[in-house]
Design a protein around this nucleic acid. Structure first.
Lengths: 65, 65
DNA sequence: CGGCCATGTTAAGTAAACTTTACATAAAAA
DNA sequence: TTTTTATGTAAAGTTTACTTAACATGGCCG
């Protein structure tokens, strides 16, 4: 699964720190998501999508798995 | 977070066993999701939504959290 | 130059998702 | 009545998401 977090965060001129605190997770978590180390929980995915004003499917790209 | 898994599964006349094998998880996982013991991973949420031909947001209801 | 800011790495720990196995029960079918 | 089918519970174990903390680096600004 790919995601557009870094791209969308930069569009909004947000730092990892700012996004993390909006989501109420740590900066490490944002780094791990942006760098593809693991996938977010569905709740975190929803929070992130909401912050960007998009649906989960618009932020997280599910390729064949 | 609430979900409509049981409702949608019954609409499709599917057993927990059938849904589980389509998702490639165990029946226990489906039971746990239907009975609200825990939330699915984003990958499992996506698979389930896909099986029902819906978006994640149509199957999983995010109330204020 | 020197310091700060944003990003990244590593590692160890906790919490939550998911598995495996075993057993229980009610309803339908044989 | 006995068996089968669908659903559920419980407990212990593995894997993955997330935290905490410490340290590294390149870019920018004074």
């Amino acid at each position: 699964m790919k995601n557009r977090i870094q791209e969308l965060r930069r569009e909004k001129h947000m730092t990892q720190e700012e996004l993390a605190s909006l989501c109420k997770v740590t900066r490490q978590t944002i780094i791990s998501l942006e760098n593809g180390r693991y996938n977010p929980s569905i709740l975190l995915a929803h929070k992130i999508a909401k912050i960007f004003g998009l649906s989960i499917e618009e932020v997280f790209i599910f390729e064949e798995e």
